[in-house]
């Protein structure tokens, strides 16, 4: 501040463009003549910013931020819910699939059982028929055998009677028949 007086600073402020090389302004920061002016306007600016910020801007931004936070939380909850629903739907689908599979299995088993039953019935019927036929045949054979036995007995009686008569003796039919049947049994 040594080289410039109060008046110098003011003169510099107005006509610095005109004094090109000649007069150096020194440090304008240290020209205390306009400190009052700067401080005045600075305080006005600061008070203006403070009022604007504390009344309008900061509450607004704070509300926007909290609102966004809320929206994000809500959206996350909704997404979680949707995810749960999707999982439920998947579970239901899987259940339905499993049900259908067991149903199909059951139908297959039923059908198989039915066929088996039919088959069994048919087999049984055929078996029964076969058995009946066999019994019939056996009966026929037994009859034939009986008949044959009868015939043999008769032939034997006849033959015995003939032999007895040929030997010159006579015997009644009853005696001969008894003897023949006794022989045949023995």
């Amino acid at each position: 501040m040594a080289t410039e007086t109060h008046g110098d600073g003011l003169a510099d402020a107005t006509g610095v463009a005109e004094h090109a090389a000649g007069s150096a302004p020194g440090m304008p920061q240290l020209d205390f003549s306009h400190w009052g002016n700067q401080i005045f306007w600075l305080l006005i600016a600061l008070v203006a910013i403070y009022l604007i910020l504390s009344r309008i801007a900061l509450p607004r931004i704070a509300s926007v931020l909290s609102e966004r936070q809320g929206t994000i939380t809500n959206d996350l909850a909704a997404a979680e819910e949707l995810k749960l629903k999707a999982e439920e739907a998947e579970a239901a689908y899987n259940q339905a699939l499993a049900d259908a599979r067991t149903e199909a299995q059951k139908i297959i088993a039923d059908t198989k059982a039915e066929i088996q039953a039919d088959l069994d019935a048919a087999t049984a019927k055929a078996d029964a028929e076969i058995a009946a036929r066999a019994a019939e045949s056996e009966k026929a054979i037994a009859e034939i055998r009986d008949n044959a036995l009868q015939s043999v007995t008769e032939v034997a009686k006849d033959t015995a009677a003939e032999i007895v008569s040929a030997l010159g003796q006579s015997a009644d039919a009853k005696t001969i028949a008894d003897a023949v049947s006794a022989r045949m049994k023995g």
Binding site: M1, A2, T3, G26, M27, L30
Partner: peptide, 8 residues
Amino acid sequence: ALLLMFAV
């Protein structure tokens, strides 16, 4: 430095 240059 500035003070020496401009203000002294």
